[in-house]
Amino acid sequence: MLRVLIADDQDLFRAAFGLILGAQPDMEVVGEAADGEEAVAAARRLRPDVVLMDVRMPGRDGIEATRDICATTAAKVLVLTMFDLDEYVYDAVRAGASGFLLKDMRRDELAHAVRTVASGEALLAPAATRRLLEDLVRRPAHGVAPRLTARLDVLTARERETLRLVAQGLSNAEIAAALVVTEHTVKTHVSRVLTKLDLRDRVQAVVLAYESGLVVAGRSDDGNHRRD
């Protein structure tokens, strides 16, 4: 049973999300919070698997709350926003959020997103996420930091190739087809990449891939894909 905490300053959204997720057979809404301070306290006390986090809240906002929750609990944070290129979403990803959704998503998308974030298997809202990450890597004016490139040295050639494909937005099935391997093999590669690079999930892996220069926004590098 997935334990979910809902943090949003608007009663209507909290109620709506609570009804949708509470109706899922594999989910339980364990608490609500109306601001960032309440969200952090509730996350530490209730130990949810996933926190739905509104970004713009009075007092302590969702970004600060996300940073604290990711640093002090095992909960995954799913950011909710009204805007697909919200500046705050960029900061939330930097703070450790595992993904984000627009508040106008369908109810089935919300439940699917919670399950996805909990499993750490895939990025959310691919089109919006891709735009966000491309915006992210255009920001640094000083270029690629050598220390970030050096972090990738611990990966094997196949693991680097897997990371590159993950960062390009491919699903496990698509990566398996590209590399001519099984999905189980892809999951193993992804797991090793996260472990070796000390990353929480695929979102952080994608951010590192862009920031290290392994993937460049707007450019595709197919590489040479061979069977293991």
Rank of each mutant, 00 (worst) to 15 (best):
M1W: 00
R3M: 07
V4Y: 05
I6G: 05
A7N: 00
A7G: 02
D9M: 03
L12G: 04
F13K: 07
R14I: 06
A15Q: 14
A16P: 01
G18H: 02
G22V: 04
A23P: 07
V29M: 06
V29T: 10
A33Q: 07
A34S: 12
D35M: 11
E38W: 02
R44W: 00
D49G: 03
V50H: 11
V51R: 03
M53V: 14
V55S: 12
R56E: 15
M57G: 11
P58Q: 01
R67F: 08
R67K: 15
R67Y: 06
D68F: 00
T72C: 02
T73P: 13
K76Y: 13
V77Q: 15
V79M: 13
V79G: 09
M82G: 15
M82P: 00
F83W: 12
E87G: 10
V89M: 10
Y90K: 12
Y90L: 15
D91L: 13
A92M: 03
A92C: 04
V93C: 11
V93N: 03
G96P: 08
L102D: 04
R106W: 00
R106Q: 10
D108Q: 14
R115C: 11
R115M: 08
S119T: 14
E121Q: 06
A122R: 12
L124V: 09
A125S: 15
R131Q: 13
E134H: 10
D135L: 12
L136D: 13
V137H: 07
H142L: 14
P146N: 07
P146I: 06
P146M: 03
L148K: 08
T149N: 01
A150H: 09
L155A: 12
E159Y: 00
R160L: 15
T162E: 04
L165K: 13
A167V: 03
A167L: 01
Q168I: 01
L170A: 08
L170E: 08
S171R: 14
E174D: 14
A176H: 02
T188P: 00
V190G: 00
R192F: 02
V193H: 08
L197S: 02
D198S: 13
D201V: 02
D201F: 00
V206G: 10
V206W: 03
L208R: 03
E211M: 13
S212F: 09
S212D: 12
G213W: 01
G218Q: 11
S220N: 04
S220A: 13
D222K: 04
D222M: 08
D222H: 09
H225F: 05
H225M: 11
R226W: 11
R226H: 14
R227H: 11
R227F: 04
